[in-house]
Amino acid sequence: MRSFQSLFPVLVVAGFFMALSACARMKAIPNLPASHPEALTAGQQVSCAECHEDQQKGTLKSFDAFSHTPAFVKNHRFYASSDDRLCSTCHKSSFCNDCHTNQVEMKPSIKFGNRPDREMPHRGNFMTLHKIEGKLDPASCYRCHGRANNERCITCHR
């Protein structure tokens, strides 16, 4: 106990210098740009690797991983959970909230009925299908309708 007491000021000073050093290093860590520097074409699947191949810096992941292939679009939740700051260089938050939100007024596919090329959940007559799909994979319902966005579900499921 006594030796710890004598070491304590040394540890505090060491900790202070480590924190100071870390702060100084923080300023050297680069930012992602706030927005994509070049215009991107709406509606076209983006291939990040076209320009960014092997240009990842620091701890950035390979840009090729974020190319919007059909597989990426289907599984984008895995990327958004750790790299939403990269997503936000090209997409506004409202782009995500067209589908993922706390209360929707209408199916996204109705709001964007003029954009059949966009991936949208519940296209067509999902009213009938949800009686099958809900039993098949309830977790897929839960991700959007579990603790939010279930106002319409509650009108029948009560």
């Binding site: 260089t89 782009f95 067209d98």
Partner: peptide
């Protein structure tokens, strides 16, 4: 107006 840079929608 955001097609040009951010916000492909």
């Amino acid at each position: 107006p955001t097609f040009k840079s951010k916000g492909e929608k």
